[in-house]
């Protein structure tokens, strides 16, 4: 035990903590060809804090796809949300996206409009990714 050192203790502690709390699951909101959107919440904790009010998609002046997602912190505490996005072609391929997470800090009840613009003409749908802090 002594020679094993602290790393094992930390690893065991981490495993216990992970077992006691739900995992950080990524959540998705995806636009659909008919103009609607599909919400896929895999993390129950986020469902209690984040409300997707709307997800609009349109073409900007250059003809590139742009989406605007209106979010609300529906909890009673200030929350940090992490957002990222991917753009999809008509055949479902992911053609571009932002891999790093944007951190949004929202006060209770605060609304925020998150905007993402595609760089390629082929982008026709957008998949927003959300992660709780």
């Amino acid at each position: 035990m002594l020679f094993v050192g602290c790393s094992t203790i930390i690893k065991v502690g981490d495993q216990i903590e992970r077992a006691a709390t739900p995992p950080d699951a990524v959540n998705y909101v995806t636009t659909k060809p008919d103009g609607n959107y599909e919400v896929q919440l895999n993390d129950g904790r986020l469902a209690e804090k984040l409300t997707i009010i709307s997800l609009r998609k349109f073409k900007n002046q250059g003809g590139y796809l742009q989406v605007q997602c209106e979010l609300k912190n529906s909890s009673a505490l200030r929350q940090d949300f992490n957002v990222s996005f991917e753009f999809l072609a008509a055949d479902g391929r992911v053609i571009e996206g932002q891999r790093n997470w944007d951190t949004l800090q929202l006060e209770p009840g605060a609304l925020h409009t998150y905007t993402a613009t595609a760089l390629r003409f082929e982008a026709v749908e957008c998949r927003l990714r959300f992660l709780a802090k």
Binding site: N60, G62, Y64, N100, D102
Partner: peptide, 22 residues
């Protein structure tokens, strides 16, 4: 990650500039 965060925000803003839509 600071460069990534700033760069991604700049990219999103810049891609909407009319001169980059020509």
């Amino acid at each position: 990650q600071d460069f990534a965060s700033a760069g991604a925000a700049m990219l999103q803003s810049m891609s909407n500039a009319p001169v980059l839509n020509q």
